[in-house]
């Protein structure tokens, strides 16, 4: 990142911020992020956020769960200590299915959520970098990078104001 200075446009209507952001992207400004109390439908597409690879991770974890479950069960009942239980064969694959299914789901859930936390750098007790105290209540904030000698702050501010911003601020991120 070549700059830590941003200009914040604060809105109270999601449609306004949506239109503003679209215009800003179209006009070539570098929008760092948009902060909202709920996920605004379509905003991630506008910002150019690619579809998360957490779906791939989820699939991989599911496969891990399946392999883990089958390995555990076949090892325990067939390779390690075989027992005659009800006359059934020691390698009784149909009965392995319920546990395999459950472990696949368990691994998917925990693995994927763990990745989610890791990718977002979310940890218990982390001090939140609060952009605006009301971002989790009823305000929406768009943060645009101020690239020195490139970004026309005045023009930017007017675009924001014309599209319904109720407040405009400048801020510096600590990276």
């Amino acid at each position: 990142m070549d700059t830590n200075k941003v200009i914040l446009g604060i809105y109270n209507d999601p449609d306004h911020i949506y239109d503003t952001t679209k215009k800003l992207i179209h006009d070539g400004y570098r929008v760092r992020d948009v902060y909202s109390p709920f996920a605004i439908h379509g905003m991630d597409r506008v910002l150019g956020i690619k579809r998360s690879r957490l779906t791939v991770a989820a699939f991989c974890f599911a496969m891990t769960g399946i392999v883990l479950a089958l390995t555990l069960q076949t090892y325990a009942s067939y390779f390690d200590w075989q027992m005659n239980v009800g006359g059934k064969p020691s390698l009784h694959i149909p009965t392995y299915i319920p546990i395999t299914f459950e472990l696949a789901i368990l691994c998917t859930a925990f693995g994927m959520v763990g990745c989610f936390f890791a990718v977002n750098k979310m940890v218990w007790g982390k001090n939140a970098d609060i952009i605006d105290i009301r971002v989790t209540d009823d305000l929406f904030v768009v943060a645009i990078d101020i690239i020195p000698n490139k970004t026309d702050v005045a023009e930017l501010s007017s675009i924001l104001k014309n599209n319904g911003a109720i407040e405009i601020r400048e801020r510096e991120f600590e990276d």
Binding site: M83, N84, V85, G86, G87, K88
Partner: peptide, 19 residues
Amino acid sequence: CGHAPCETVCPVLATVHSS
């Protein structure tokens, strides 16, 4: 029983079949 219904359902292998 050779196909003991009790053995199949014990969760901890407390009842199994001898050779």
